[in-house]
Simulated scan of single mutants.
Amino acid sequence: MPLDHAPARARILLLEDSPLDAELIAEHLEKISPVPEIRRASSRAAYMEALDERDFDVILSDFSLPDFDGMAALELAAAQVPDVPFIFVSGVLGEEVAIESFRRGATDYVLKQRLIRLPAAVERALAEARERTERRRAEHQKELLVRELSHRVKNTMAMVMSIVRRTARNSGTVESYVENLSGRLRAMADAHALLFESNWTDAELLQVLERTITPHEQGNRFHVTAGPLIHLDPKAALALSLAFNELTTNAIKYGALSNADGQVAIDWSREEIDGEPWLALRWCEIGGPAVSPPHEDGFGTTLIQRSIRYELRGETVLDYAEAGLICDIRFPLSASDENIIS
């Protein structure tokens, strides 16, 4: 059974020139659990040194000090550590002064004659500070997500527009255009759906492959020898999804899946090249009609090669062996990706 983490001790900067008052304040703060750490500053110099270190969660300050006053201490704190709660602990604090201190950013004030209020005031100030910090963190995260989404949408739309234009240029009929374009867009949609399920962090290679080939599976004609578990970042998942779609479409039209006996074998491994992990994947067609190199590369071949080369810094080798097409795809996996499992 997991153990609960104990709450961290609050760190308090106490600006107080009177040792006796400082001792009384410390005694009342012992009612907070866990008991906070207290750093006392008794002069302007010590206070400014503590502000520079920024190693505290709340400031408690007397209002009247020998070499400067509490308002000056508040202004220094507001300038250097504006997110740290500032509480006056004073023997005398008139109503007008209290209102002015709040206007300048003070969180609360506690009279030394009523130090019994101090623990609750400190805990409340700390809770409010944590809430503000969490709210800012959430807003910052939201802003990052919106920027990332905007970036991805722009890239996706650019890719879609390119695919639409190139598919139209390489299609002889409206029917072939619709078929080819639908397949490519479906491959992109499937990859996006898979990434969405993982909060757009990564996708397993095997899942990307299965999303592409499963709709075309007839009689176990795909033989997948799963290699190590590989998690792909979004760019790699989209590039491979498009590559698998082009290879599958080509196999159905011209290759091993164009007859009743052909099969496709797929396997992959993880390699180390110059200390960097690479994915090596092979698509091998057997039992289909004899193949030969085309007179010129079609858009499907170009799409595979360019996406692997330019998007993933990898390479694609197509071998039009008489027994069937062999496609070798290799590209470096992110060295910072901790989700690659041998």
Rank of each mutant, 00 (worst) to 15 (best):
L126T: 10
A72Y: 04
R135W: 07
E95D: 13
R40M: 06
E134S: 08
I99D: 08
A77S: 14
D69G: 13
A50G: 03
L126D: 05
R103P: 07
P85F: 06
S64V: 15
G91V: 12
L149W: 10
R136W: 08
D69K: 02
R135S: 10
I59G: 04
S42N: 13
S101I: 08
D69A: 10
L126V: 12
G91K: 04
P85R: 05
D55Y: 12
P119R: 06
T107Y: 02
D55L: 06
N155Q: 13
A50T: 09
M159G: 08
G105W: 08
I99T: 14
R132T: 00
S64T: 15
E148L: 15
L65S: 00
H140Y: 14
R135G: 02
D55R: 07
V89C: 05
S43C: 15
A125R: 06
L74S: 06
M159N: 06
L145M: 14
F102L: 12
A129R: 06
L118G: 01
R103T: 10
E131H: 07
Q113H: 14
Q113A: 15
F102P: 10
I99R: 12
E131T: 00
V110M: 06
A46W: 09
E134L: 05
A72N: 07
R40Y: 04
L93Y: 15
S61P: 04
R54G: 08
G91W: 07
V122P: 10
I38M: 14
H151F: 09
S42M: 14
M48Y: 09
L74W: 11
S150C: 00
E95S: 13
A78G: 00
A46M: 11
T133S: 12
F86R: 07
D57G: 03
A73V: 14
L149R: 11
L144V: 03
A120D: 07
V122Q: 09
V153K: 09
H140K: 12
A73M: 15
I59F: 07
V153P: 02
S64E: 15
L65G: 01
G105N: 04
Y109T: 03
N155M: 03
F88Q: 00
P66E: 10
T133E: 13
I99K: 07
I99H: 02
A45H: 14
L118Q: 02
E143Y: 00
P119H: 02
A79P: 06
V89E: 01
R130H: 00
A121H: 01
Y47K: 01
E123Y: 01
L60P: 02
A45L: 13
S150P: 00
L145C: 08
L144D: 01
E123W: 03
F88W: 00
